[in-house]
Amino acid sequence: MKKELYGLVVCGGKSKRMGTDKSLINYHGKPQRYYVYEMLEWVCDKVFISCNREQATGIIAPYQIMADLPDLGDVGPMAALLTAFSTYPDKDFLVVGCDYPFITTKDLKEFEKVLDREQIASAFYNEENDIYEPLLAYYSERSGNEIQRMYTSNQYSLQHFLKENGAEKYNPVRPKRMISIDTPEDFHAAKEKIALKINL
């Protein structure tokens, strides 16, 4: 029997550069956190919106939430995984951030199809910048202990975790869809491309 895969929509906090909560931005007719959730439902057995406690109060049913553990403090996206593995230590997670409006269900299905579940982790890889995309990634249950160890050592970078553990590099068929939108100017340009159905 194939092991269950849980999906995690990572909301994050208020982006300084964007000036607003990126999970609330509407690219596709609804807040991005709900759009990503619904994409993950096609790939995962169960999906949660990972958020801070303030964001949790605004999330409507039927979307399931996983609010960051209160004692984690400001450790960025690592809080989402620390909470996830604390809640479900025997599960694997597919993580998608709200920063990538061009990612589609097809992209996620292609990733899941070739995923080596024996790897500790696997992430979309940006060849141009020679970096992993930690919020377009798979984290196996074995990641949990290592991420907890890093947190205890005051190391909060998921990029560092992926590099140090030799995470599998996934080169997507359409790499331009990995674009992270972080400023109001980028948002307006992305919104226009999506409205015009410009393929990336």
Rank of each mutant, 00 (worst) to 15 (best):
2 K>A: 12
2 K>P: 15
3 K>I: 12
8 L>V: 12
9 V>N: 02
14 K>T: 14
22 K>L: 10
26 N>S: 03
31 P>Q: 06
31 P>D: 08
32 Q>W: 06
38 E>C: 04
41 E>S: 09
42 W>T: 15
43 V>Q: 04
46 K>P: 04
48 F>E: 07
54 E>A: 00
64 Q>A: 08
65 I>C: 02
67 A>N: 00
68 D>H: 02
72 L>R: 01
73 G>D: 01
75 V>I: 09
85 F>V: 04
85 F>P: 01
87 T>A: 00
92 D>R: 01
93 F>N: 03
96 V>C: 03
98 C>N: 09
100 Y>D: 06
102 F>Q: 09
102 F>C: 07
105 T>A: 05
106 K>E: 15
108 L>M: 12
108 L>S: 05
112 E>Y: 14
116 D>A: 05
118 E>S: 15
118 E>M: 13
119 Q>V: 14
121 A>F: 09
121 A>T: 13
123 A>C: 10
124 F>Y: 15
128 E>P: 01
128 E>A: 11
134 P>S: 02
146 E>L: 10
147 I>H: 01
147 I>K: 02
148 Q>W: 13
158 L>W: 07
159 Q>M: 08
160 H>L: 08
166 G>E: 11
171 N>Y: 14
172 P>T: 14
173 V>M: 13
177 R>Y: 13
189 A>K: 14
193 K>W: 15
195 A>M: 11
